[in-house]
Design a protein around this nucleic acid. Structure first.
Length: 545
RNA sequence: GGCCCCAUCGUCUAGGUAGGCCUAGGACACCGGGUUUUCAACCCGGCAACAGGGGUUCGAAUCCCCUUGGGGCUACCA
């Protein structure tokens, strides 16, 4: 049976790269009728962030990726948090030590740094110099007593080249002696990633590992460890292409802070105190951030971004959710990053993806994360998800962004979705419909729109006529409103826009709204009239100044 | 620096594993036109690529080599 896994480290939110890895492993497991495991690799105590696990779990579920074994669902091979498996790793470290396949080391960080510098000077790879005689437990005990760091290194075989049979790249050869002895147990007693991952993959029965190409250089070492531990049949590896950013290089979560830094610096007379308050951090922290020394945490970044009203590139899965993307879109788009079903197929549901997913169609070359195309995919998925699901997604979105639209009942929301057909994101729908739920006096007027539509071409005069006709209307229906506006336009021998636009700006403050007849009808007669009056008053007052 | 991976339109890619079906197909973006009450959507049309150089072959986008270019890794991070 195929057993695949996703093994994130809880250092932050689930980002695009991680989500893709998770998705591919999940697709492969589902396609083969196998099992998908979620394992948390929290072996670095310094980097773990407390809420990360919950976040990652929430994001995976939002995408529709469910696991058969792992946190919250349990399973026979638990625990699924590596920090809770220390005794297991200790046992295997001891085995390797006893068999002289691993050895203690006492180097300090500075000593190691010096060795690396030396290697670089000689234009060679840094290969740790293995001692002639391995220190024994007593030596380790002594060194520890003296306050020396004690680590354990794996003695990598040096006689034969190491060959990794990769399902994407074929046989990748590493010359004998090229892979140095790497640390498998840190001085704090925790295993390193390269060790814990090998042990767990065996114990959890993993058969396939799909991961980014950035792991390719870890594979020979892990494979040798696997053999040294006597784990038997090797894992099947597939190293997928890296997703690169349009700014060049691997798509990284550091892009958001970077973009924010740039945005802050571009603002001339910025009030750092206020900004700090918005982000709930100290001013010194911002200064240090601007110098590139430190990075505030995600909530602070998000809060400051919101405060400044700037748009940062989405990197984490929640970012896409907050920008109004559908999980259907993300899953579809992610799947096409380094894979494709062949031919012309592009828009697919999760179910369709499972049906045709195939490792032989994994792409070798890196792919760029194209936000324009993502938007096009979202437009298409909004069109095709179906009413019920879209309504659900929309409500989730409204809750997350704390929109005033949240107060509407389902019937109204469905109507809104309907009249906003063609929207590219849920944010578009929200933006267009929020005027319906704002208090009349909270309408913000777009200067350009006011100038162009109301102050020119008799805008206000037309608006006055429209107002009277609306007031006189007995049945405030879409048809009546449409009929009135159309005949008025005809009467005046002008395009519909000439009469519709002033009305549009009057009720929502901008020239962007759902179709005008629906907008007016949904707003209702009373509010429409009041807004027209407010608008006239405001605009006249402003024109005088 | 060392090791490793990769290379078709601006971008994602089909085609490459069985060389002729490719005067290279699709999608996004872009440009032009249409529809139109705004934005968006929608419809029609257009632009646009086998990185370069050597081979192998009757024949190469497809196989081999080199160059160039891009990317990854190079931690007591994962």
């Amino acid at each position: 049976m195929v057993v695949a896994r996703f093994a994130p480290s809880p250092t932050g939110y689930l980002h695009v790269g991680g989500a893709r890895t998770a998705l591919f492993n999940w697709l492969w497991a589902r396609r083969m009728g196998g099992k998908f495991i979620l394992r948390i690799e929290d072996t670095d105590q310094k980097r773990n962030t407390p809420t990360a696990i919950e976040q990652v779990i929430a994001d995976l579920r939002w995408l529709g990726i469910e696991w058969d074994e792992g946190p919250e669902v349990g399973g026979p091979n638990g625990p699924y948090l590596q920090s809770e498996r220390r005794d297991i790793y200790d046992k295997y470290v001891k085995q390797l030590l006893d068999e002289k396949k691993a050895y203690y080391c006492f180097d300090t960080a500075d000593e190691l740094k010096a060795m690396r510098r030396e290697a670089e000077k000689q234009k060679k790879s840094f290969i740790y110099r293995r001692p002639e005689d391995f220190p024994d437990d007593g030596d380790a005990q002594n060194k520890r007593g003296q306050g020396c760091p004690v680590t354990v290194r794996f003695a990598v075989g040096r006689d034969e080249p190491i060959v990794v049979a990769d399902m994407v790249r074929g046989e990748v050869k590493f010359a004998a002696g090229e892979i140095g002895d790497f640390i498998i147990q840190k001085s704090d007693g925790f295993p390193t990633y390269n060790f814990a991952c090998v042990v767990d993959d065996k114990l959890m029965g993993v058969t396939h590992v799909l991961r980014g190409q950035e792991h390719l250089m870890n594979t020979p070492g892990q494979q040798e460890l696997w053999k040294a531990l006597g784990f038997g049949e090797l894992l099947k590896y597939a190293h997928m292409s890296v997703t690169v950013s349009d700014t060049g290089g691997k798509l990284s979560k550091r892009e958001r802070p970077k973009a924010l830094r740039k945005a802050i610096k571009s603002i001339e007379d910025i009030d750092l105190e206020k900004l700090a308050k918005a982000g709930d951090i100290a001013v010194e922290e911002i200064n240090s951030f601007l110098k590139g020394k430190t990075t505030p945490d995600v909530p602070a970044i998000d809060a400051m971004t919101k405060y400044l009203g700037v748009h940062l590139p989405e990197i984490n899965i929640v970012d896409f959710f907050n920008s109004g993307y559908l999980p259907e879109t993300m899953v579809n788009f992610l799947a096409l990053l380094g894979w494709n079903p062949g031919g012309d197929r592009e828009i697919m549901s999760l179910e369709e993806l499972v049906e045709c997913f195939d490792l032989s169609r994994l792409t070798k070359a890196n792919s760029l994360f194209d936000r324009d195309k993502l938007l096009a995919f979202n437009t298409e998925h909004i069109r095709r998800v179906g009413k019920e699901r879209l309504l659900g997604h929309f409500k989730d979105y409204l809750k997350a962004v704390e929109s005033p639209v949240i107060g509407a009942d389902d019937e109204t929301l469905e109507r809104i979705i309907e009249i906003c057909a063609g929207a590219r994101t849920l944010a578009d729908i929200e933006r267009k419909s929020r005027f319906l739920f704002l208090a009349d006096e909270r309408i913000e007027y777009d200067e350009k729109a006011v100038k162009k539509v109301l102050l020119k071409n008799d805008g206000l005069a037309v608006l006055a006529i429209v107002r009277d006709k609306l007031e006189a209307m007995e049945q405030f229906t879409v048809d009546n409103i449409e009929g009135m506006l159309r005949s008025l336009a005809q009467e005046k021998q002008v395009g519909l826009g000439k009469v519709a636009q002033p009305l549009r700006v009057a009720i929502c403050g901008t020239t962007i709204s759902p179709p005008i007849f629906d907008s007016v009808q949904m707003l209702g007669k009373e509010k429409t009239l009041r807004r027209i009056d407010n608008t006239v008053r405001t605009v006249k007052a402003r024109a005088q100044n």
